[in-house]
Write a protein that binds this DNA or RNA. Structure first.
Lengths: 139, 139
DNA sequence: TTGCGTGCAAAGGTTTTGCATGGCA
DNA sequence: TGCCATGCAAAACCTTTGCACGCAA
């Protein structure tokens, strides 16, 4: 038959707990690994990656590829704000990643769709520039 | 002294020729490797990656990370169209690159600066999504 | 001749996979 | 008990690096 059982295991609970703790922050596979190792509850790489894939399929997590040499980022999708759209801004100097979500920014996708015939995938779109902190430091 | 010599070699000419041929399409390191190998003018991986880095530094090529398992994409920057004042939209399906410039889009940078304390570098920012042509084809 | 560019192979990092074992239901 | 999930190690991937040799100027 269609063997689609899903087991609830300790490892999966730990991984989800880490995501909950991080809220809407981005998390890398390695951060999960390290955190669990430091808490004396190590989980293997394969398990993390496999479960990350599964969570992504289920729509509970989004996957981003922002910079290379660092690995992909994963972000937990809260049940309640599942459709919350937002963009990322990455500072080219300090490398920090910011989230922006406001009415103007959230209207961009609609505008671009209406006027430019293009459907934006905000999860893959990153604004590059320089953040305020770095700008002030540079003076 | 400031030993900043730049040699013009056969390998570099071949790589640039490939970019020229591809126009504004995106290209992966592997595509360059394969194309040159099929043309009986193989070039080593190291050379491709090293020259790609150099081209990027010189601003002749832009580097994007779109999907993984595929590697990074590189796009040739035509000398004449300096794409400074507007944004790019890249279709994730056909790889085509579109330019958008309109009052609303051009106001984004100002808004983000005023409200989010971040200076956008529009030349490095790319909107990812699906273009109208591909969307209609998918139906 | 000078010193930048190249090729090869090895190393680097992240992610995937095969297989035997473990553990949920 | 039946399967799914796990862990380990090895492999697969893309990319970078060290070193000796080649080649443009």
């Amino acid at each position: 038959m269609a063997g689609n059982k899903e087991y609830r295991t300790k490892q999966r609970e730990l991984i989800e707990a880490f995501f909950q703790k991080k809220g809407e922050q981005h998390v890398t596979a390695d951060e999960i690994l390290q955190f669990l190792k430091n808490n004396d509850t190590p989980v293997s790489k394969s398990t993390v990656y496999r479960y990350l894939d599964k969570l992504q399929e289920l729509g509970k997590v989004r996957k981003y590829t922002i910079e290379e040499g660092v690995g992909s980022c994963y972000q937990y999708v809260e049940e309640n704000h599942s459709c919350k759209e937002h963009y990322h801004m990455k500072c080219l100097q300090c490398g920090k990643l910011y989230h922006i979500s406001c009415s103007l920014m959230n209207g961009i996708a609609e505008h671009v769709y209406q006027k430019h015939d293009f459907v934006i995938d905000s999860s893959k779109t990153v604004f590059y520039g320089v953040c305020g902190d770095c700008r002030r430091e540079n003076v």
